[in-house]
């Protein structure tokens, strides 16, 4: 792990609790970040504990988990496809999750079912991708094209529903597809958090294989790796992470696209260390955006996806231009 990665990880590790505490402390019942952090673990006044643990913590934790999962999913896919534009959009997961969620909205199902619908939709889309693209070998070009097709079809279905819905329903559908952390529960956060943690460990373990895969199929084969099998493992991981994230926060596409690039520009080429940094940065970005729309901006009801993109884009573009000048 190089020095810049370590420094960035340290910075992220300091920022993360600070931002979490701030996020927990903001709201109608004002308290200091330190009080909020104590209340999260059940210490302090009963009222504070109730507000923090019951109302604020699920949303904050959901943002952290979803942000990290989205960012890692984007990184896995960009590396796998060797394409800087890859993100869960490309494999249809975003479209599938949106389709599932919006469909259930249309059917009038309860809010509690939406995350499950998103998760299911994402996995179904991945299944469609597999059904069409898998043909004993996982050629990258075919995966990408079929993924695009699945995504386009599902996105069109969502679009159609938004156009056809009554305005009220169209609005909540649009809200969800832009990204929304509203109404998260502890159950969702616990289940999602556990699953994402397991998948992150798996991603770290598979990082070695990803590095060997970077050498091209021939060299990877010569080193005893089955390229197709390794690709499948990584792809499944990315799909699961993106679907879980979509269930928690809606498909915030920008995190998955931009965070891997941010990390690459900050800390250099992919290593297990930068994988960790990617997760941390994604979590920070999504939570920061959520704090922004929830507490700092005068506009009510701004979707978190809008803030994420607005917050992340200038940063990414700045790094891109700076990186450019230092390049040979």
């Amino acid at each position: 792990m190089n020095r810049r990665t370590v420094l960035c990880c340290l910075a992220a590790a300091v920022l993360l609790p600070a931002l979490t505490a701030t996020a927990l402390s903001l709201g109608q019942v004002a308290m200091s970040p330190a009080t909020a952090l104590r209340a999260l673990f059940g210490f302090g006044q009963g009222g504070d504990v109730l507000v923090v643990r019951e109302f604020r913590a699920p949303r904050v934790l959901a943002a952290l988990i979803a942000g990290g999962a989205l960012a890692v999913s984007g990184r896995l896919l960009q590396r796998l496809f060797r394409n800087p534009l890859a993100s869960p959009d490309v494999i249809g997961v975003t479209g599938g999750a949106s389709f599932g969620a919006v469909l259930l909205l249309a059917l009038g199902a309860s809010q509690l079912m939406i995350p499950l619908a998103a998760l299911g939709g994402g996995l179904v889309a991945a299944g469609l991708l597999g059904g069409f693209a898998w043909r004993s070998r996982a050629a990258v070009g075919r995966l990408v094209l079929v993924g695009l097709a699945v995504q386009a079809g599902l996105a069109a279905a969502v679009n159609l529903m938004i156009v056809r819905f009554p305005a009220e329903l169209a609005s909540s559908a649009l809200q969800w597809t832009t990204g929304s952390l509203y109404g998260r529960t502890w159950t969702e956060v616990r289940a999602g958090g556990t699953a994402v943690a397991v998948l992150l460990v798996a991603a770290l373990l598979l990082d070695r294989r990803a590095a060997v895969l970077d050498l091209g199929d021939e060299s990877a084969g010569g080193l005893g790796l089955r390229p197709d099998r390794a690709r499948l493992q990584i792809l499944l991981l990315a799909i699961a992470l993106a679907s879980l994230a979509a269930a928690l926060s809606g498909p915030v596409g920008f995190v998955a696209l931009a965070v891997p690039h941010l990390v690459r520009l900050l800390a250099g080429p992919p290593t297990p260390g930068t994988l960790l940094l990617t997760a941390l940065t994604g979590a920070l970005l999504l939570l920061g955006a959520d704090v922004l729309v929830l507490h700092l901006l005068p506009l009510r009801g701004l979707p978190v996806g809008a803030a994420t993109a607005t917050l992340g884009a200038p940063w990414l573009l700045f790094l891109l231009t700076r990186h450019d000048r230092s390049a040979p």
């Binding site: 920008f254 701004l302 884009a313 990414l316």
Partner: peptide
């Protein structure tokens, strides 16, 4: 990449306005 980032930003603003 720049175009995709720009698209993401503008699309999210469009959604925000409509919401």
């Amino acid at each position: 990449l720049g175009g995709t980032v720009l698209t993401a930003v503008l699309a999210s603003w469009t959604s925000a306005l409509m919401l």
